[in-house]
């Protein structure tokens, strides 16, 4: 399924899709989005790559093994929970901190964001592991 149009378009669209997936992840706490849909969006960016070229190219574009992504995601989610234990709260209690960034205004960061990043990574990893294994078979 080689198509010049598709492969050219995918080269342009791929980074946009990835950026959009991160955007979805970050806005998730207040607007529609989040780790699940962000992760799926990122996965579809790589799937587009795989369709336009082939699975090996998509794997190279991914840079890391999907298994590594899964492990890193689970660790991130777990770490978000352990932060709470370390400060004497029950496991997975969200904790937040606010700070001012010059030029960017007030920022609020919390462990739920780290947790959502974990979800994002796991979803990307799982989708890519399954799809790439099947595509390469």
């Amino acid at each position: 399924m080689k198509s010049v149009i598709l492969s050219t378009a995918s080269r342009l669209v791929h980074p946009l899709l990835l950026m959009f997936s991160v955007f979805l992840l970050l806005r998730g706490h207040n607007e529609p989005g989040g780790g699940f849909s962000g992760g799926l969006m990122a996965a579809s960016a790589f799937v587009l790559h795989a369709l336009a070229h082939d699975a090996q190219t998509a794997r190279r574009a991914l840079k890391v093994q999907p298994q590594t992504l899964i492990g890193a995601g689970l660790l991130a989610a777990l770490a978000a929970g352990i932060v709470a234990l370390a400060i004497g709260e029950p496991f997975l209690t969200g904790s937040w901190t606010s700070f001012h960034m010059p030029g960017l205004g007030e920022w609020t960061l919390g462990t739920p964001l780290l947790f959502d990043v974990g979800v994002y990574l796991v979803v990307v990893g799982v989708s890519m592991l399954i799809i790439l294994s099947m595509a390469e078979d």
């Binding site: 998730g28 529609p32 989005g33 989040g34 978000a80 929970g81 496991f91 969200g94 739920p112 979800v119």
Partner: peptide, 17 residues
């Protein structure tokens, strides 16, 4: 939970486990 998107807050905070 400092979030306006309830679905997401449930996922990552209220029902994070």
């Amino acid at each position: 939970a400092h979030g306006r998107n309830i679905v997401n807050v449930i996922l990552v905070d209220f029902r994070a486990i």
